[in-house]
Measured scan of single mutants.
Amino acid sequence: NEEPLPEGWEIRYTREGVRYFVDHNTRTTTFKDPRNGKS
């Protein structure tokens, strides 16, 4: 039961299956979860 991502964020996966987060607001990507700060 995960809380929803902030507005404008999306979860994607690399070809290796590593989860990362896309911030469409700033057009950046990060491996850090914007909901809780954990990677």
Rank of each mutant, 00 (worst) to 15 (best):
4 P>A: 11
22 V>T: 04
33 D>S: 01
5 L>T: 03
14 T>A: 02
19 R>L: 10
31 F>Y: 11
12 R>I: 06
4 P>N: 09
14 T>F: 02
19 R>A: 10
3 E>K: 11
18 V>P: 01
19 R>H: 06
10 E>P: 00
15 R>V: 11
14 T>V: 03
13 Y>V: 07
27 R>I: 06
12 R>W: 06
8 G>L: 04
1 N>C: 14
17 G>F: 05
13 Y>A: 04
4 P>G: 10
7 E>H: 13
32 K>L: 13
23 D>L: 03
10 E>Y: 07
1 N>F: 13
31 F>A: 07
16 E>L: 14
4 P>H: 08
30 T>H: 11
29 T>F: 15
21 F>E: 00
5 L>E: 01
25 N>W: 07
16 E>Q: 14
37 G>P: 12
17 G>S: 04
8 G>F: 06
11 I>V: 10
4 P>E: 10
15 R>I: 11
37 G>E: 12
10 E>T: 09
14 T>L: 04
26 T>D: 04
39 S>N: 14
28 T>Y: 07
17 G>R: 07
8 G>R: 05
23 D>V: 02
20 Y>P: 00
2 E>S: 10
36 N>T: 15
1 N>P: 13
14 T>Y: 03
6 P>M: 04
2 E>D: 11
20 Y>F: 11
33 D>Q: 01
20 Y>G: 00
2 E>M: 10
31 F>G: 05
11 I>R: 06
12 R>G: 06
5 L>P: 15
27 R>L: 09
24 H>M: 08
28 T>F: 07
33 D>Y: 02
34 P>G: 01
21 F>T: 01
35 R>A: 03
16 E>F: 15
16 E>R: 15
15 R>M: 12
30 T>W: 06
24 H>E: 05
18 V>Y: 12
20 Y>N: 01
27 R>W: 08
11 I>P: 02
22 V>H: 07
34 P>D: 01
39 S>Q: 14
13 Y>M: 07
12 R>M: 10
19 R>Q: 10
28 T>Q: 09
13 Y>H: 08
28 T>L: 09
21 F>W: 06
21 F>P: 00
4 P>D: 10
27 R>S: 13
28 T>H: 08
18 V>A: 09
6 P>Q: 04
6 P>Y: 04
13 Y>P: 00
